[in-house]
Every structure is written in C-alpha cells, then in structure tokens.
Amino acid sequence: MLDPTAAVVHSPKSAAAAAGSFIWNLPRNILILLLLAYRKVVSPLYGQVCRFFPSCSAYALEAVTVHGAVKGSWLAARRLARCHPWNAGGVDHVPAGHREWPENRTPRIVVLNNPDKYLAAQTDGEGRTAA
C-alpha cells in the first residue's frame, strides 16, 4: 500500500515547480526546524513558564507553519511582547490561516494547539473504529 513514489508521481507539478516551492518554503521550513529543536532542547530546561495556552514556542511554531516565515515570525514576535508578568495570560490561539492540509495530514502542532477542535474529531474516529 505504501508506495514511496506515490507522492512524487501523483503530483502533476513539473520538477521546476517543485524546486520553486522548495525554495519558497525553505525559510519557513528552516524556522520550523529551529523551533522544533528549541522546544525539544531548551524548553524543558525551564519547565513551564508561559502564561498562555498555547505556550509562546508552540504559538510560534504553529504561526510559522500556518502563516509562513514572514507573517508567522511577526505574529510570534507580537505574542512574545504580550507575554510578561503583568498580562493576565489565558488562552490565545494563532489566527486562522488560508493554508489547507490533506485529510489526516494536519501538522501535529496545529492539532495539539487546538485540542477542543481536534479532540472531538478524534473521539469520533475512535468510536467508528470501535463500532
């Protein structure tokens, strides 16, 4: 069932378009890697300090994933500026973007940052497989 060439073949894009989109997405993907590394290595050092849900690094990761490098960084910077001891904190989601993902391939961070939205979907799915 798993055909490694499926992803390449089913895309009608030319190699040039693929290279173009690779370059276009490169800044975003570099930022995503940096943020993932930060969340894996640096975040655990401090434990939870953030006054918001999602935490600033989770917010930044989602913002860059959903909105791209430029707008995502801007959103993340604004969130960091909001995150200080005199802000009450609370729930503060990344604004919805226009990017769409194929079924079951929503980035993990988007799922984790919007638990109420995806938790309902997940329990539905579980119910179906159980039945």
Binding site: V49, R51, F52, F53, C56, C83, H84, A88, G89, G90
Partner: peptide, 21 residues
C-alpha cells in the same frame, strides 16, 4: 487549555512568563 482559561478568569497565573529570563 482549560486550566489557562481558568487562571485568566480568576486573574491569577502561577507562571512568570519568559520576560524575566
């Protein structure tokens, strides 16, 4: 998420934010 919403409702939050660091 619910816990954070609760902190905000009560106006108290045990976390210091990343500013001090």
């Amino acid at each position: 998420q619910e816990q954070m919403a609760m902190y905000k409702k009560h106006g108290t939050n045990p976390f210091s934010a990343c500013l001090p660091m």
